[in-house]
Simulated assay, not measured.
Amino acid sequence: MTADILRVRLGVLRRVATVLFGIALVVGVAVALRDADWAAVRDLAGPAELSLLGLALLVNSVGLVLGMLSWRHLLAGLGSPVGVWTAARIFFVGMITKFVPGRFWALIANIRMGRTAGVTPARMATVYVLNIAVMSLTGLTVGLVAAPSVLGGRGGWLLLAALPVLACAIRPELANRWAAALARLLRRPAPAPAGHRDLRYAIAAQAVSWLVAGLQFWLVAVAAGAPPAASFPVCVGAFGLAAVVGSFVVFVPDGIGVREGILMVALTGLLPLPTAGAVVLVSRLICTVSEIASAGVALLAAELIRRRARPPAPAVPAGTESPAGTELPASV
């Protein structure tokens, strides 16, 4: 088999895989929203409520961008700095793979896209694991503010999540030691030590990302009639806690059902049960739309930048032969 034929076949396989992935993504999103009670959402369709929901959509998109910047700082700290739009393309495509059945699609997508950006698979795998750790620990730490409302007296264990976050913020080399130990466990080469400054930035950006995402949930709850002051700490903390706990449940995509259950418990003291259900459903829809839209914007922007950076094809002088071997007329 010649190299040209192999290249063509690999290109066809990549296109087929891309189409299949897109179909799986659409099916995954449909399954995520299939069993929802949309009748309960009608009460949130007034002009005032819709303006708050639009603001919630914008706020959640800002939270996603902060999460991407946290991931980018981790990658830069490991010695592989990439541009913002390159990071956004890799991060958001990996993020929306959570709707596809299977746990490690994000890692596979990150490794494949990282190669095109000059990042080694080992480094992409390291940043994948570090990012999960940073997201989980900061999300549980933000969840501390809602623990009394959600878990009652059993929420004290969440204090343990704050300790590693504080320790890594004060002594970032601890994260490097953890990554090296993980590499030894997996029998992989030890990753390059992450820069202390980038680690601190990553932790701070991810913590703020959870706070902003919780603000999205609070805006939806206020649109449904929740008292603004009393619901703010509950909504902000419960969202981070529910999202992290839901991500640990590997047999459902994006913690569907688990996240909603925790958020429903948090809202029962603030809203009637049907209204709380509508808030949780609308929040899930806002998150899904903003995630897919962010991925689309990142991919489109990255492609436009790539095309602008592509050098123009050299002009063929008039009267010379074209690459196909035919003589071009002088008027071309």
Rank of each mutant, 00 (worst) to 15 (best):
I23L: 13
I23G: 03
V26Y: 03
V27E: 08
D35Y: 07
D37L: 09
A40H: 02
V59W: 01
V65Y: 10
S70F: 15
R72P: 04
L75D: 00
A76G: 10
W85P: 05
T86F: 06
F91V: 01
G94Y: 06
M95D: 14
M95H: 15
M95I: 08
M95G: 09
K98N: 05
W105T: 03
R112Q: 15
V119A: 08
R123S: 09
M124W: 02
M124N: 00
M135I: 12
T138C: 07
G143A: 04
L144F: 06
L151T: 02
L151E: 02
G152Q: 01
G153F: 07
G156Q: 10
V165Y: 01
P191R: 05
P193I: 08
Y201H: 09
A205Q: 12
A207P: 01
S231N: 10
C235E: 09
V236R: 00
A243F: 15
V252N: 02
P253T: 14
D254R: 14
M264G: 08
L267C: 08
L271E: 01
A276Q: 00
G277D: 04
L285M: 08
I292N: 07
S294V: 07
A298C: 04
A301K: 05
R306S: 14
R307L: 13
P312G: 11
P312L: 05
T320H: 11
E327K: 06
L328W: 06
P329K: 03
S331N: 10
V332A: 12
